[in-house]
């Protein structure tokens, strides 16, 4: 569903993403993880069309995001880490606006179901300024899901949510994956990634350093010694495992 081929993104002389390739199939929930500045956000922004790739290609549902952006975006939903809402539109008006943009006919039924699923009942006529950050996050997610996207991208989806909200969010992500959507979750919360993702892509300094299921990563010879949990694998893969570092002069 999502095909990233040799993607590079540069800002002036700085290369944020360097020849990155990976794919996400239907019903897959892929965790995209990496240290700060690894190029995760640039990658996600290129996939959803916010930024243009410097090199390489991205296809969503077979549609090239540069050559045929409208068709590619029709299949996509992007949930940014910061909920981005129009401050003068109510919750219901947001859903109506997005429905029209995506040509969703049964807007009222879907909106009602999403409002119930995301516990926004009673907030239909509220403006964003009257909502908590977690509520805003839920509205942004409702807007993203109303057109039943086939490819969904979550950037730090748990930020600002309370424990109950976190549980519901995890259920929403898994539910969409099981329903056949290709899902990418970018997060620093490795336990979340470990819990809900079927595959993990680790990038560092714009380059992919690992790609596979957790078992496949554990079985990799260079990561086998790291341990069984994702945190250890991540730190070893990105060369940031201080506990395994050689003492100064030890290898001399």
């Amino acid at each position: 569903m999502i095909e990233v081929r040799e993607l590079s993104k540069s800002y002036d002389k700085f290369t944020a993403v360097d020849r990155l390739s990976f794919s996400v199939g239907p019903s897959e929930v892929v965790g995209l993880i990496g240290p700060n500045g690894a190029g995760k956000t640039s990658t996600l922004r290129c996939i959803v069309g916010i930024q243009a790739p410097s090199k390489g290609t991205i296809a969503v549902g077979g549609h090239d995001t540069v050559k045929n952006p409208v068709e590619a975006k029709r299949l996509l939903a992007f949930m940014a880490d910061e909920p981005q809402l129009f401050e003068y539109l109510t919750v219901m008006e947001h859903l109506r606006l997005v429905s029209r943009l995506y040509q969703v006919r049964e807007v009222e039924e879907r909106a009602k179901a999403l409002i119930h699923e995301l516990q926004l009942t009673g907030k239909e006529n509220s403006l964003p300024a009257e909502l908590s950050r977690g509520m805003k996050q839920k509205v942004a997610i409702a807007c993203g899901l109303i057109h039943d996207p086939q490819a969904i991208i979550f950037d730090e989806p748990l930020t600002g949510l309370d424990p109950l909200g976190i549980r519901h969010m995890k259920e929403t992500i898994v539910k969409r994956g099981r329903a056949g959507a290709a899902v990418i979750v970018s997060s620093h919360l490795l336990h979340l990634v470990e819990e809900i993702c079927t595959r993990i892509v680790i990038i560092d300094r714009g380059v992919k350093v690992a790609d596979g299921t957790l078992d496949e990563l554990r079985a990799r010879p260079d990561l086998a010694a790291a341990g069984s949990n994702l945190e250890s694998i991540f730190l070893t893969a990105t060369g940031r495992d201080d506990s395994r570092a050689e003492p100064a002069g030890g290898s001399q």
């Binding site: 129009f86 008006e93 606006l97 429905s99 029209r100 943009l101 040509q103 969703v104 006919r105």
Partner: peptide
């Protein structure tokens, strides 16, 4: 406690997307 939900016109679920943006900006 709640804003006026009166909008300039009822936005139909399907049709030209320009109308949706026009509707949004009129609300603003």
């Amino acid at each position: 406690s709640t804003p006026s939900t009166i909008t300039p016109f009822q936005l139909a679920p399907v049709g030209r997307p320009e109308v949706a943006i026009f509707w949004k900006n009129l609300i603003m």
